[in-house]
Design a binder for these strands. Structure first.
Lengths: 329, 329
DNA sequence: ACCGCCTATGTTTACGTAAACATCGTTGTG
DNA sequence: CACAACGATGTTTACGTAAACATAGGCGGT
């Protein structure tokens, strides 16, 4: 900056004014300074700026895993929105989803150069009273039920689950089975509850719950269990990957989808349309979740006020070929 | 820091020494200072540290998309290794893979607080002479052929492609068809070349190339084309998602996998083992790619020397149920 | 006992920027 | 014509930290 000032024959303060687009600089001076900046390839030093401003214009994202599509897409949405609003993204991976690791990550947070924090957790850890986010920086949480303490953004799991079950019931199925995700997952529990409530509201039997761990393999295992149940005509699977495994197990067991058994998934992965048969599923807008997280976080940064509460992103049913009316007896 | 110094009855310099674990502080003093730090909840201000050090201990990652599993997993590997080595990760998403957008991202780079840059590009843009990374910060590139200008880390696409084709030939197939990825993709071209060379080396016919865009849908379309070719007994598909679509098209067309047609994919996605049939594929170690990127970048940061060249991460064949000997005529 | 060296700690300064304050010239007005 | 008001620019200072230099005791060797 000093070099630019010297070359342009002005003071460094004037360079600063030009650099930040402040008014009160005569156009001729501005030109000269800009020319000098170009010639010297001047770039403001963000460390010094951050020191001055007390802000890094950066959002920290704490997450456990990028292995699943949802987290990746959410992160992509966060990155896009943050960039559009002039903020950077700092990743804070937590290797193990243990309480100690989470607390460690939160501890490091305070010394990190971050104006706000977005936490992407698919597990209940954050709900435990012992794991608290440090105060100070604004926080937005994805997919948790800590809505009483922090702003939470989430897909509308309940409506999604209800849509799935209602779709199957409307086709004439007597009842709907469910393959849930792991118990530690908040999303899984929401979908499970919606399934149970929708069945109950329709006066249908509620079969026993099968569990998977989100993986296609666990869906395959669930499918094998289902083969032993002759009465099954409809299954709501808590995510598309498990639905894939489940459909393959059914196929191997000689049960056709959708002629013998209808299957509905959840997520609407890019591949779902290419499954055999193309999967009827609940679409989630992960990018929108990411966008809303950033909006919420930056609202807090700019307006100061943190208001706990849950923002829900709508889901919708995508009907493909994996559902049909139940077989005639 | 001044408050801590006052409370501990020492100078701020001593606090700094304790904070950074410097030697030459008597244990008793250290204790007092640490107690004061705890009491006041002192955290070093990273902006000021960065200003002093001229470094944020941060690596910037430029990427186009997290939509595909490979990029996500690579990023995860990068994040894990960087964190382990005490560096942070700043994400720099590039919305559109156009030259202008890339140049824009590189421009912003210089003013960003980043010690090194990792570029994850699956397209040829970086090879164009007009798109040059700014000098200064160390750079590591994933998946490009700019190895003459920058250090490049990549999966060993060639060996992977060769393994796939050799596996099929060893089962007795007359030749192997190929469904390639988009032409802009460097990885796709490498796999295509390996396929062609391996066939040529074995003295086999080289069928015409089918193209997809990595998506399962494009694999389905390629599969439909393949149905018109009665002589096809073996297909090497450039990624698992396309293989999924292709197998479904074959199934719909009445061609059984692997009895009539053998299929080999590339990637070894978590779901591949749950496809119908479980997919024989080439395993890529994305996490290792990420790790090596960070190692390469930090070597440059710490040792200064940037040496262009390509580091290859081995691939291996994973044999499952989608390949078998060709049908008897 | 004295000198010098080493160790523990304190003082000064610089990193690059921008807010706050100071200065200078110009313009408009009574 | 003098003076106030304002606009453009320069000067000072502070942000929090750590390197470089300074100082002051203590200890061993002669």
């Amino acid at each position: 900056m000093a070099d630019v000032a010297k070359l342009a024959g002005v003071s460094s303060q004037t360079v600063s004014r030009v650099s930040n687009g402040h008014p009160g600089v005569i156009p001729a001076t501005r030109e000269v300074v800009q020319a000098a900046m170009r010639e010297l390839g001047y770039r403001p030093n963000s460390a010094a700026r951050a020191l001055k401003w007390g802000s890094f214009r950066t959002i920290g994202v704490i997450l456990f895993s990028l292995a699943n599509v949802g987290n990746s897409k959410t992160l992509e949405g966060i990155a896009a929105e943050a960039t559009a609003r002039g903020y950077g993204i700092t990743l804070i991976p937590v290797a193990m989803p243990t309480e100690a690791a989470v607390i460690g990550a939160f501890g490091r947070l305070e010394e990190l150069a971050v104006d706000a924090v977005i936490v992407i957790m698919e597990i209940h850890l954050l709900d435990a009273a012992t794991v608290g986010l440090p105060p100070g920086a604004p926080v937005v949480v994805v997919d948790s039920n800590a809505g009483d303490r922090y702003p939470v953004v989430d897909t509308d799991q309940s409506t999604g689950g209800r849509l799935a079950v209602e779709h199957l019931l409307s086709l004439g199925h007597e009842t709907v089975w469910h393959v849930a995700g792991p118990e530690e997952s908040f999303a899984s529990e929401r979908r499970l509850a919606a399934w149970r409530e929708t069945l109950a509201a329709a006066g249908k039997d509620v079969p026993r719950v099968l569990r998977g761990d989100w993986s296609a393999e666990s869906g395959y295992a669930a499918g094998q269990q289902l083969l032993a149940e002759e009465s099954v005509t409809a299954v709501f699977v808590a995510n598309d990957q498990m639905a894939l495994g489940l459909m393959n197990a059914l196929h191997e067991g000689g049960r056709r989808v959708p002629e013998d058994v209808s299957v509905v998934g959840f997520d609407d992965l890019p591949d779902s349309a290419a499954y055999l048969p193309p999967l009827t599923t609940i679409h989630q807008d992960f990018a929108e979740v990411g966008r809303l997280c950033v909006d919420g976080a930056l609202d807090q940064v700019e307006n100061g006020a943190s208001q706990p509460g849950v923002t829900l992103v709508p889901t919708r049913l995508v009907v493909r070929k994996s559902t049909a009316a139940p077989p005639k007896r």
